[in-house]
């Protein structure tokens, strides 16, 4: 029987050393059993590798940066929709979620579906709100403090012991072992990402991630926990293995039940030597290692598309434990004309 074809716009084609999830999401969608896909890449930079992966991406359009505002983005998406008849968009960057959540009703009116968290859910899980989030939903989080002023740094040792984590509001985190280092990281990170800076208690232990999908009513549609096995100097997992930690799955189900999270997500967790779990961060989108979910039997991007299209999706209940992903870098040979096409015309 011929499967229906869905036109899906996907961002995050930057398959670099700190990769966007787009290429992994597309690989998962290409393996969907419930539909066929035409993939429309949505790129910000001409050198995003996914643009040139023609076996994965059918056509790519450049889109304006989120900082340009929702109107500019809407105009560009309308143009792309006119040409490609988009059915679904899967955004893969935190920063583009805010304008897209705002644009969701307008896009839906055009027939473009998404499956995103609500604005409240998106805001609540921001790093600066993690303490309150932990209290509200009864989830263990490391102690943290938001600071705006370098002069307040001196009082930190009375509240935190060294080492402590210095975090940017969107990206970047460094471990500081002295006040001098806190100051250095404060300046470095705030220059790049702005204020405030978040100071967070350092939890000694092993790093884990859980990716999954919430239906928006408190139900868990999918959940796959993974232990990072090979971590790059940017803290990204370059290799990992699926595990069966019931505590981690319980925390995930509790997170979804209590927040009624809608959409894909990634929880960043730390387990200390006593086996206590701490939630460090909630990424409001699918992670770059999402293809592991396909490998273990839960095609989360496929389920997300079906939910976006308004279909009832049966929750996944099992997955393979002990399956690994090992990432690699791959040099593509690209004709200059292709680079020229995307750079000059914004389409390829």
């Amino acid at each position: 029987m011929k499967k229906r074809k869905i036109n899906i716009g996907v961002t995050g084609l930057n398959a670099i050393d700190s990769p966007g999830p787009g290429v992994s999401v597309i690989r998962a969608l290409r393996e969907a059993v419930s539909f066929d896909v035409r993939i429309i890449g949505l790129s910000y930079e001409s050198l995003e590798p996914g643009i040139y992966m023609h076996d994965l991406v059918d056509r790519t359009y450049s889109i304006p940066y989120p900082a340009g505002g929702a109107d500019l983005l809407m105009a560009r998406l309308e143009y792309i929709h006119e040409k490609e008849k988009l059915d679904v968009i899967i955004p893969n960057f935190d920063a583009e979620l805010y304008p897209l959540i705002k644009l969701e009703p307008k896009l839906k009116a055009l027939g473009i579906h998404m499956f995103l968290p609500t604005l409240t859910q998106f805001e609540e899980r921001q790093k600066v709100n993690l303490n309150d989030f932990g209290k509200k939903y009864n989830i263990s989080v490391p102690k943290s403090k938001v600071i705006y002023d370098l002069n307040t740094v001196h009082s930190l040792p009375s509240e935190f012991s060294f080492p402590m984590i210095v975090k940017g509001k969107f990206y970047d985190a460094s471990i500081a072992y002295s006040i001098e280092q806190v100051k250095t990281f404060f300046n470095k990170i705030s220059a790049k990402w702005g204020l405030p800076i978040i100071i967070q208690e350092f939890i000694h232990g092993a790093e884990f991630n859980v990716t999954g999908l919430g239906d928006g009513n408190g139900n868990t549609i999918a959940a796959v926990p993974m232990r990072k096995q090979y971590i790059t100097d940017k803290g990204k997992a370059w290799g990992g293995i699926s595990i069966s930690d019931e505590k981690m799955l319980d925390m995930t189900r509790k997170f979804l039940r209590n927040t009624k999270w809608r959409g894909g997500f990634e929880l960043e967790l730390m387990k200390n030597k006593d086996g206590e779990l701490y939630l460090l961060e909630i990424n409001p989108r699918l992670p770059a290692w999402i293809y592991l979910s396909v490998g273990v039997g839960q095609n989360i991007p496929e389920a997300l598309v079906n939910m976006a299209m308004g279909e009832t999706v049966t929750p996944f209940v099992t997955y393979d434990v002990g399956k690994m992903f090992i990432r690699y870098a791959w040099d593509m040979i690209v004709d200059r004309e292709e680079f020229e096409q995307i750079s000059m015309y914004g389409e390829l």
Binding site: A206, F208, M226, R227, Q229, G240, I241, S242, I243, S244, D245, E246, K271, V321, G322
Partner: peptide
């Protein structure tokens, strides 16, 4: 429970992911 030991001596703990 579920700790796997292969014939050649690789132990895998499925809860922690350690080998």
């Amino acid at each position: 429970k579920n700790v796997a030991v292969s014939e050649v001596g690789l132990i895998f703990n499925p809860v922690t992911g350690e080998s």
